[in-house]
Design a protein around this nucleic acid. Structure first.
Lengths: 192, 192
DNA sequence: CGCGTGATTGAAACCCTTCAAGTTTAGTGG
DNA sequence: CCACTAAACTTGAAGGGTTTCAATCACGCG
């Protein structure tokens, strides 16, 4: 599971020639911490698979505040699916929170792969749906749960990410201020 | 555009036999105001196309409060895509806000149609992506915008729905209380 | 060592919720 | 078609959770 091909072909082994052809279209790249892969306003054409390290996508609102949309640690694919699919300017920035090794896949690669292997359609649709499920639960969370409940849910869902990013970024993901998160944490440990 | 087939086959005319075969799998139904089509916890297998009327999907949180996820007026498709795709119990209720005429499509219908007509895959993927774009903007809204900004955005985006549903349901969609929305409206009209 | 970034803490302000009461609107049965 | 009732909307006061602003502390890195 250290390549995007492993993910897309999961349970659907291809013959060797196909594999090599596909692999030749995938670029591997090392990115430095803080390096920006994609900016708001650009037409996105890429998917990024994280082999090693940590990426994130985020928006910057009218007041200049960052809101983190998604963290992508090892084994995850991150992209602006919307911009990729319907060719509208991206609303998202994507950058590296750690020095990372990634695979960059042009969307045309996917389109080709889908045309040639119907299993790829099934697998990528499933990934799309899973991403949608996350967004769905996140909307529910934001509408119905307090900051503390959201933080607890984040701890359960992404325990491995908590240790790797500054707390202010977790706050940004949860939709609260760093100060508020600090106070929540203070209250929780004191109670313990 | 008064049938789900029109939507899925858009720009891809099928021959008459195919059309009739597909149409035969689609059930048309009249539902009364308040009728529930799907409950939380069920395994969802259906998509609902609204020919006439208005449906909604919503969740009920731990405190018993409703949070509206989506309104579906004429021409829209509403479903729990997540439950349909990966066969987990649905988190959503779906019911009718008005007496409605709908088309009910079993997910196996879609799967057949997709297997037989690759264009259907393309069209339904696009619909999925569009739905994702809505969810994406909604997350951003909930994280970065005040109640009033969210309401104004809703007015711009769904001007036709505002007049058809009780305000408390718009409040429920926006993630605020009916009282808060009432005060926002009071302030806006007074200022005008 | 000293600087910059992140985390913490406190006080004040703000937005929204909760609760309660009163008013308007809409639906129903006579 | 009116009268009655329930539901929806409005309004106000009090309270809570979160933000904002500011000061302080902790830490890693040049």
């Amino acid at each position: 599971m250290n390549s995007i091909l492993d993910q897309l072909m999961l349970n659907f082994p291809l013959d060797k020639i196909d594999m090599e052809l596909l692999q030749s279209k995938i670029k591997t790249k090392h990115v430095a911490k803080g390096e920006i892969l994609q900016m708001k306003g650009e037409l996105s054409n890429n998917f990024y698979f994280v082999k090693q390290g940590l990426l994130r996508s985020y928006v910057i609102d009218d007041n200049g505040k960052e809101h983190i949309f998604m963290f992508a640690p090892e084994g995850w694919i991150i992209a602006d699916n919307v911009s990729n699919a319907i060719q509208v300017p991206s609303e998202l920035f994507i950058d590296a929170l750690e020095a990372s090794e990634i695979e960059i896949c042009n969307k045309h690669f996917f389109e080709e792969a889908m045309a040639q292997h119907s299993q790829v359609v099934a697998v990528s649709t499933k990934k799309l749906i899973n991403r949608m499920a996350v967004l769905q639960r996140r909307v529910i969370m934001l509408m119905s749960a307090s900051a503390m409940q959201r933080y607890e849910h984040f701890l359960e869902t992404y325990p491995n990410i908590v240790q790797r990013v500054p707390q202010k970024m977790i706050a940004s993901y949860l939709g609260i201020t760093p100060e508020a998160l600090s106070k929540i944490r203070g209250g929780m440990t004191r109670k313990k």
